Amino acid sequence: MDHDTVRLETPATPSAPALVLRPWRPEDADDLASASRDELLRRWVTSVADDRESAARWLREQRHGWETGTRYAFAVVERLGEAADGPLVGHTVLKRRLPDTSVAEVGYWTAAHARGRGVAPRALDTLTEWAFTVFAGDGLTRLELVHQADNTASCRVAEKCGYTFGSLLPAAPPAFPRDGHVHACVRGAERRARVG
């Protein structure tokens, strides 16, 4: 899959602009480092950028994920016009568990300045549709979403997007310091109406 040509779009809502999901670029390093300074984001995600250098390293890792077909990470930006990207508002990712191509994991975060505007559910909904369409031929039938049990906002996003709660995941410090929830979405199952 050509990393440089993938561009997913989410339509505008009455209260929020359209979103574009595109692969991360090297020039996103400053925006990523800025977003990563948010203490709430740092509480929920294990991989954050402390400065421009660590952001650049993280961006190289995302590009490598695309090249190996194991991790498809997208910057979520507002769409300003037909060809113009606006500010960074979030991140979403599809993690494939090769060689098992039937199950993959999704993840996301929203930048502090964009919270409460429906960024995460709209981006996750778009990523879910893309994943089930693009990887259907590889046998992808199930997407899992894992978050810390006390992250109620992520629980709401999962439910809005048709990911049903499946099980409790015990803590596994240091990478996953608290108990977690596992939600799942199965291809072909009836999903809730598109997020608006």
Score class of each variant (00 low, 15 high):
A104F: 02
Y108I: 07
S102N: 12
Y108K: 01
L169R: 12
T152K: 13
H147S: 05
T164S: 14
A114I: 09
C161D: 08
T164E: 14
W130C: 06
A111T: 07
T101K: 13
R117H: 13
C155V: 15
R156L: 11
A149Y: 10
T133I: 10
C161F: 06
Y108F: 15
R117A: 04
V119C: 06
R117L: 02
W109S: 03
V119R: 03
V103K: 00
T101F: 10
R115E: 01
A111F: 06
F132A: 01
T128E: 00
D125P: 06
L127Q: 01
L124A: 09
F165A: 12
H113T: 09
L168E: 14
A120P: 04
T133C: 11
R115Y: 03
L168K: 15
T164H: 13
R156N: 10
V103W: 07
R142S: 09
V146T: 11
V103A: 08
T101I: 10
R156V: 11
H113Q: 11
G107P: 03
V157L: 05
L140I: 06
G166E: 15
K160H: 10
A114Y: 04
F135H: 09
G162I: 01
V146F: 11
F165T: 10
R117S: 05
A131D: 04
W130E: 04
V106S: 03
A123V: 08
A104H: 03
P121Q: 04
V157R: 00
E105A: 15
L143C: 05
R156I: 09
E159V: 11
V146I: 12
A114F: 08
V103T: 12
E105I: 13
E105F: 11
F132S: 05
S154F: 05
H147A: 04
A131S: 08
T133G: 13
Y108M: 08
S154M: 05
N151R: 01
G162D: 04
G107S: 07
Y163Q: 07
A112N: 06
T141W: 12
L140R: 04
C155E: 15
R142K: 14
L140E: 01
G166M: 13
G137M: 09
Y108D: 03
